[in-house]
Design a protein around this nucleic acid. Structure first.
Lengths: 302, 302
DNA sequence: TATATTTCATATGTTTTAGATATGTCATGG
DNA sequence: CCATGACATATCTAAAACATATGAAATATA
């Protein structure tokens, strides 16, 4: 039994007339009669009563007609669903991001736009350190991730630069450079004597190395008092007065009691990149679409 | 797209291996590869990723797999349902009967047995006069009917004798032959002077003509006071004292206040037949089965 | 490193089968 | 009673499924 048989059967049943059904199907009458007969032989059931003026469904035929219609509809639906999944218009993607990424308006915006453009694609979100995220991408637990560190150059992972943003200084409210309503840019050298609290290097070496490198450029070796597992924790430690840190300026959206953000005055620009990582092969169409959407938004400044 | 494609696709997806799937399907590997490729071309979607060690579903393939499995299952189910409908093991029949038929235990018994033997056949029941029932059979509103009259010899209607039962006399309790606890058989001639109440001839001439003929045989012409539309109504009229009537003895099951049933003593046996009518062609398998079951029960005295 | 093995893809031939053409049969309607 | 309409049958053609033989790429093995 093939779908062709069901299609032919439905046509004959609907027309009540083999010859007309054959016309509708774009074939001749004899092969249509044959195929119907073949169905009857296979099922060992008479599907039509041959009348002098056409054909008429038997009870068994009537029983089959309803099922055949439904099945043909299901097939159409399944094929179109498959096509759309293949085109990335339907399906499921999992997106990861480091803790600092969603503070930049770019990230929520691109997620929102993607969801609007492809409502049939279910999105799940995951937060984690860069290392975890890259591992998750590799093991196909997630499809893409917004990260801030370079990826250990690699096997099967592609990264795309999305944007760069300036870093700024986060000081405890009580800090000598933050007291009052001071908003004057802080030169990195002014922090030479301060304790630094940094986002743990193992989780994401990018920011860590950038900050330490910039300090060296300014002629001092930062005293790293503490490493925190997430950037939010870093800021909490700063707020409680344990030290200072540098964060991407979008983190200013995180307004913590007891913390002041000040712009950074440096010769060499100290910037935090935002990157998108994904598998370089074996990605679903939905994932491809997401990456493409994010890159396009990045290019157009969206 | 044909079911073959879906079958092949499911096999490859389940094996993760074209060659093994081909073995399972009983064909060679190259045609299987071709058919899978044909699907991908038609859908314009990659269903499998070719790995050096086999093949692996893409997201689109995964989406299709679930649907394909379901569809193949639905097809199997539909075909088996059709087969069973064709064999009369599933479906729907409508059975009619004259008002007097269900009083004979044969009728409810055969209905009950059929329902037990073929629980998947839905039964609907209809009551009506013989003429109506025969018309309903002809117009395919019902499939078969228990009747007591001969059918106007006919086009497309077959009848089968099921059983015969003696007639008995139904008298008002106040009737001279019924007073006290008399149970003596009544000779038909004894009723020569009585008013007769008969089941309307137009609805079913069988009993009517039989009764009138028997009276003639007994040497008198019955005085027909009243005709009633249903046999139950006839008995109600008898109960209220308007006259006497003759009914199949199974009607004694209908115990009405004010009525007495007495056996009939006649030279020639006066009997009421029970017949089963159905279309001689164009009946569903379920209807055929029902008629066969009823005839068999009749033969075996069931 | 070279070779054997595994596995899917490609090329080409064969067989099956769907479909086309021509004709037959049967019932109906003028 | 013949013409018409409809499905069935017979035979042929063409398409497509399948088989066989071989190639290509990657991996495992010597």
């Amino acid at each position: 039994m093939e779908l062709r048989h069901l299609r032919y059967f439905v046509a004959v049943a609907e027309e009540g007339h083999v010859t007309r059904a054959a016309e509708r199907l774009g074939i001749q009458q004899p092969p249509l009669s044959q195929q119907i007969r073949a169905m009857e032989d296979e099922l060992d059931v008479q599907l039509f009563r041959r009348k002098p003026r056409g054909v008429e469904l038997t009870d068994a035929g009537r029983a089959l007609l309803a099922d055949a219609r439904r099945i043909l509809g299901d097939v159409d639906q399944a094929l179109s669903r498959t096509r759309r999944t293949g085109r990335g218009e339907e399906g499921r993607i999992a997106v990861g991001f480091t803790s600092s990424a969603p503070f930049h308006p770019f990230v929520p915006r691109v997620l929102r736009n993607f969801r609007e453009d492809f409502p049939q694609v279910a999105m799940t979100l995951d937060e984690g350190g860069t290392a975890d995220l890259v591992a998750a991408i590799r093991s196909e637990q997630i499809d893409a991730a917004f990260i801030r560190s370079p990826v250990p150059e690699g096997e099967n992972i592609a990264t795309y630069d999305i944007l760069e943003e300036p870093m700024c200084v986060a000081l405890p409210k009580s800090h000598r450079l933050a007291r009052g309503a001071k908003t004057k840019p802080v030169a990195l050298g002014d922090l030479a004597g301060d304790s630094f609290i940094l986002y743990r290097r193992a989780s994401g070496p990018g920011l860590y190395d950038g900050i330490v490198g910039a300090c060296h450029d300014s002629g001092f070796n930062p005293r790293i008092e503490q490493e925190a597992p997430r950037i939010v924790a870093t800021l909490n430690l700063v707020a409680s007065g344990l030290g200072v840190t540098l964060v991407p300026e979008s983190l200013q959206a995180m307004r913590l009691e007891g913390i002041r953000y000040l712009p950074l005055a440096t010769r060499r620009k100290l910037v935090a990149p935002l990157r998108l990582a994904c598998r370089s092969v074996d990605h679903s169409a939905a994932a491809r679409r997401f990456v493409a959407a994010a890159r396009k938004a990045a290019r157009t400044g969206g």
